[in-house]
Design a protein around this nucleic acid. Structure first.
Length: 655
RNA sequence: CGCGGGGUAGAGCAGUCCGGUAGCUCGUCGGGCUCAUAACCCGGAGGUCAUGAGGUUCAAAUCCCAUCCCCGCAACCA
């Protein structure tokens, strides 16, 4: 009986914005899943989408599309993306799938009957126009974060999950099973910030929106994300359905992989739900770092291409997979820059790997007419090379088990580099000049092809297309298992070796960087235009957020805008973002606090003329009274002041 | 004193737990080679291991103490 392996990504929220970060988790899981399959394990790899909730409902309404149609559309682009990236998931779950909805209702019932879910009141701030509840921390200056209007403290009836009941068991879990939550830094984070201070019961239903799974015995309520989304890991296996054979076979999960931002839900709420259901806990929850957008020295933060489709179109899917798998170290963040991407591409994929294949195949063709011959005359360098080939798989396997993905790839490339060195050591072109050395030459070339065979096979889980191309060129059938294939000496004499096209065509760094920057700018331009023109057609939640409701002239007339002259400016102590200004607005000198310390120095602000909202209700920021607001323009990358085109008297009106 | 992570060669990082010649990748410079995708191989230069003529020690990047700086999260972004 095969050993089972169940691995999951989180289910993604279909907001329509998929970029490198979204791909990272999925590609890593894919590599692991493929690897385990080739280790002869029975693998189940799950991914999917979390489609319910207010945000989706609202966006769909605004566009006037049926909510289900809206998510269908979003999901299909995601599935296309996974196809593009060669993601080999075994199942794609959608929380709108009927089997999931039914199972969630049963789970909710079970917890309710057990007494772990109870009805009570949920206190929050309610924004009537938006029909939304907000917690105190979500409020912006005590107002609705969406529309900025007043909110009122309201009680809403809600079902609660007894999270507090499981607090001690959760602390135990994390403290006594250091393997459960990885990397270790997350353990402290969870213990110190959430578990030790005490857990509160969790509101698991809402009445403020309808786009969700109804509470089975109370139609007013829909089940909130916690129980709806997290349970996908078991409902996907048929838990609580007529056929739960997969559940019995694969649960508990061996690995829940996710970004560090949602570790909290998976290491606290999810185990608590499982405890309440009396189901075994997953073996491991792993919160990986993020792929951050770095900044190339020259181009600042601009011009980095983060659209995986664009990158894979231009440089191949495996170039993208390789970068993702190679650049994010265990437990911390990786940085994406065009330069780093191209650097990896050229140095590793083109120069080391591609060129090794190219030169090896070329020599077999040149010296032996393209037929593999196994010589018997060994060289003094054989042993070292073959040792590195024979020990490769073990090293990679060890790293994969510890989730050290970049290190696993490093091991593979170490062998590639060793092989390149072997060519130099044995100098086949010299052997070729001496007829007496023909057998030794055959041996050298055999060892090279044999090394490429093992490298190709071990690369299959990581770079499937590349690995297949390598194997095809050297006439090897793609194996389904590692067993018996990842040791030296298994190449078959007489195999036809082809010298095919370059695996990865080397790029000119400077030209390519310039081209990428240009592409990025064009994409950016397009995005801006799309936002302007297609407000109704292509909708993402992002667009919905930036577009404000229409107002009439009277609304606008309520705002008093004046030209002000900045007299003094200083940083607000204890705050990173706040600057404190005194501004002459004609009528008087005002104290104004703005959150722009990141963008301006104190010196450059003094003496500037700016536009000020002078009839804004005063507020206290960073302990300082702010009597108005200075207008700034923001394009997402930079923030600038808005100034009159020529100097005016302070107090001049703006309308 | 909010929580956490970090400061090691031009860039990105390892080494720190368990003190003992400071290492890897990229870049750079020089050499070699010509099978190969101007690729490959070898070698050099480049580091007061944030600071403190701090403490412990025969010995500190590593352990202890103090300080400074950076980055996340939280709070505040009118």
């Amino acid at each position: 009986m095969k050993e089972k392996y169940y691995i999951t990504t989180p289910i993604y929220y279909p907001s329509g914005k998929w970029h490198l970060g979204t791909c990272y988790t999925t590609v890593v899981c894919d590599a692991i899943a493929r690897f385990k399959r080739m280790c002869d394990m029975d693998v189940f790899y799950l991914t999917g989408t979390d489609e319910h909730g207010q945000k989706i409902e609202k966006v769909a309404q605004e566009v006037g599309i049926d909510t289900k149609l809206f998510v269908d559309k979003q999901v299909s682009t995601l599935i296309d993306l996974w196809k593009r990236l060669d993601i080999s998931y075994d199942k794609f779950i959608r929380t709108t799938d009927s089997y999931h909805e039914e199972a969630v209702q049963k789970i909710f019932n079970k917890l309710y009957e057990k007494g772990d879910i109870y009805k009570s009141e949920y206190e929050g701030w309610y924004c009537t126009p938006c029909e939304s509840f907000w917690t105190k921390t979500q409020l912006v200056d005590g107002k609705c974060p969406d529309c900025g209007r007043e909110v009122e403290l309201t009680k809403e009836s809600s079902y609660f999950f007894r999270l507090s009941k499981y607090q001690d068991r959760l602390i135990d879990l994390i403290e006594k099973n250091p393997d459960f939550l990885q990397p270790k830094s997350r353990q402290n984070e969870m213990l110190n910030n959430f578990l030790k201070p005490g857990l509160q019961d969790l509101a698991v239903s809402r009445t403020s929106f309808k786009w969700g799974i109804p509470v089975p015995f109370d139609e007013e309520h829909v089940i909130y994300v916690w129980i709806d989304a997290l349970t996908n890991y078991i409902t996907a296996l048929g838990y609580m359905s007529d056929d739960d054979s997969l559940f019995r076979k694969f649960w508990p999960a061996n690995l829940h992989m996710m970004g560090k931002e949602i570790v909290r839900f998976h290491s606290i709420i999810w185990p608590a739900i499982l405890m309440a259901l009396d189901i075994p806990l997953p073996e491991k929850v792993y919160g990986h770092g993020w792929m951050l957008l770095g900044s190339d020295k020259i181009s600042k933060s601009k011009g980095n291409i983060i659209d995986p489709i664009v990158l894979s179109d231009r440089y191949s899917v495996d170039a993208v997979r390789y970068y993702l798998l190679r650049e994010i170290p265990f437990g911390s963040d990786g940085i994406y820059t065009n330069h780093a991407f191209l650097s990896r591409f050229n140095a590793d994929l083109c120069n080391s790997l591609g060129n090794l294949l190219s030169r090896s195949c070329a020599m077999v063709n040149q010296y032996f007419g393209g037929t593999l011959v196994k010589g018997t005359t060994k060289t003094q360098f054989d042993e070292d090379l073959l040792n590195s080939v024979d020990s490769l798989f073990g090293k990679v396997e060890k790293n994969i088990d510890k989730l050290l993905i970049p290190e696993a790839l490093q091991e593979i490339f170490n062998v590639v580099n060793r092989a390149n060195k072997y060519i130099d050591e044995t100098a086949p072109w010299i052997l070729a000049k001496d007829v007496a050395k023909k057998d030794e030459l055959a041996n050298v070339l055999y060892n090279l092809i044999d090394t490429l065979r093992v490298v190709g096979i071990v690369l299959l889980p990581f770079l499937p297309q590349t690995a297949r191309k390598i194997l095809a060129d050297i006439g090897v059938n793609e194996p389904t298992l590692f067993e018996n294939t990842v040791v030296s000496g298994k190449s078959v004499e007489g195999t036809v070796i082809v010298k095919g096209n370059a695996l990865f065509p080397r790029v000119n760094m400077e030209k390519e960087l310039a081209a990428m920057e240009k592409m990025a700018q064009e994409t950016e331009q397009k995005k801006v235009e799309e936002k302007k023109v297609e407000k109704t057609e292509v909708v993402t939640t992002e667009v919905a957020q930036t577009a404000k409701k229409e107002i009439n002239i009277d609304d606008f007339d309520k705002i008093e805008l004046k030209i002000g002259k900045i007299l003094t400016a200083e940083k607000v102590e204890k705050s990173k973002k706040l600057l404190h200004f005194t501004v002459d607005t004609g009528d008087r000198v005002r104290s104004i606090v703005s959150g722009v310390a990141k963008y301006f120095t104190v010196e450059e602000m003094i003496g500037k003329e700016v536009i000020v909202v002078t009839n804004l209700k005063t507020a206290t920021l960073g302990g300082i009274l702010s009597e108005g607001m200075i207008l700034f323009a923001d394009d997402g990358d930079s923030v600038v002041t808005v100034e009159p085109s020529k100097t005016l008297k302070a107090g001049s009106t703006v309308s």
